[in-house]
Simulated scan of single mutants.
Amino acid sequence: MHMLLVARRGRARDRFLEELARLGAHCQVAETPEELTQAARLCRYNGVLFDVPTIVREKHFDKGALQKLAEIYPSARLKYDASTDAVFALGTDAGPPSRDGLSVFVAACRDFLPRIIRRGERVEAHLPAILWRTRPPVGDPGDGDPGGERTCTLNVSILGCFLFTTTQWAIGEEAWVVFPDVTEEPVRMRVAWHEPWAKRRTAPGVGLAFLETPPALVAELGRLGCVTGEMAIACAGKGL
């Protein structure tokens, strides 16, 4: 189970992470809007947690964007009591403001289908692509090299793409993709999720987040109609 925690550095954040780990939840932490954007591009989440002092005092966070997060995911506000070293969770899914509030929230999140935060609309597009586990030489089409897998995108967004493949990939792995009809420059990417083969309703493949985007690729994505939206890494299906 994967949570997103918005919190500044300090004892409070350390205690939040300790309690979440004790409850079996892995946590991605965002301290700044930039870190929140990066986290949004990499993972699916079962829930989101907000440290109250952070969201009240940090003026750089867009309060409207934080509210949208709370509407997309089960959410809770966290408070730390330094005098007792206790963590309290408040919110619709967090139960009463007691020491049990966080455990109630985590238990509720177990039934929530993990979602990824979207920041742009997906566009259906079938771009020829060659998928690599290591960086290929510039201009290498992958002929005869088992390291390069010929495939194509099923859809793309300004922040990533979904590639058809039956090969096993792990979330977080680095990948390299060449789009031969667009540019010979390999594009460094990271696996945001993996859809295994043999699911009846979902195409197998990997959702990849761009870690860099050559100008030619940016231009092609724009030509295809990819634009930045309010809250996207492409995915196999049309739903989140």
Rank of each mutant, 00 (worst) to 15 (best):
A203Y: 06
A70E: 04
D93S: 14
Q28F: 06
R223M: 05
V87A: 09
R135G: 03
R15N: 01
C152N: 09
L90A: 02
R201P: 00
E124F: 08
E184W: 12
D140H: 15
V177H: 10
V56D: 00
T153R: 14
P186G: 01
H126N: 12
D51Q: 07
E58K: 06
A89M: 11
T84V: 13
E173F: 04
G160A: 01
R122W: 03
L102G: 09
I130F: 00
T165L: 09
C109L: 04
R57W: 08
E18Y: 14
P137E: 11
E31V: 11
P114S: 07
T92S: 03
A129Q: 05
A40H: 07
P136Q: 04
H26A: 15
Q38Y: 06
G144I: 03
G205R: 08
Y80Q: 11
F50L: 13
T202E: 07
H2P: 01
R13W: 02
T151D: 06
I233G: 10
R22F: 11
A198G: 07
G172T: 05
A216M: 08
T228W: 13
L23V: 10
G172A: 06
R44C: 12
G47P: 07
C27V: 15
I117E: 05
G95N: 06
C109G: 04
Q67R: 13
E184Q: 14
L208D: 04
G222Y: 10
G148L: 03
C161Q: 09
A40Y: 05
V48F: 09
T202F: 02
R200N: 04
L224N: 11
A219L: 15
A129P: 10
F16C: 02
G225L: 05
E58W: 02
I130D: 02
C226T: 02
V191E: 00
G225P: 08
G120W: 01
P74S: 07
A209M: 02
G47Q: 03
G237H: 13
C226V: 04
A94C: 12
D145C: 12
K199C: 02
L5D: 01
R188T: 02
G142P: 13
V227H: 15
I233Y: 01
A39I: 09
A7I: 09
Y45T: 08
P74N: 08
V178Y: 02
E184S: 14
R9T: 14
E184A: 15
K59L: 12
K63L: 12
R118V: 05
P141Y: 01
L42N: 06
F16W: 13
G24K: 10
V191K: 01
V178R: 03
R119N: 13
L211F: 02
I158C: 03
Q28I: 13
G225E: 00
G120C: 04
L42C: 10
V104D: 07
D51V: 04
V104Y: 06
V106R: 03
R122A: 14
T165C: 13
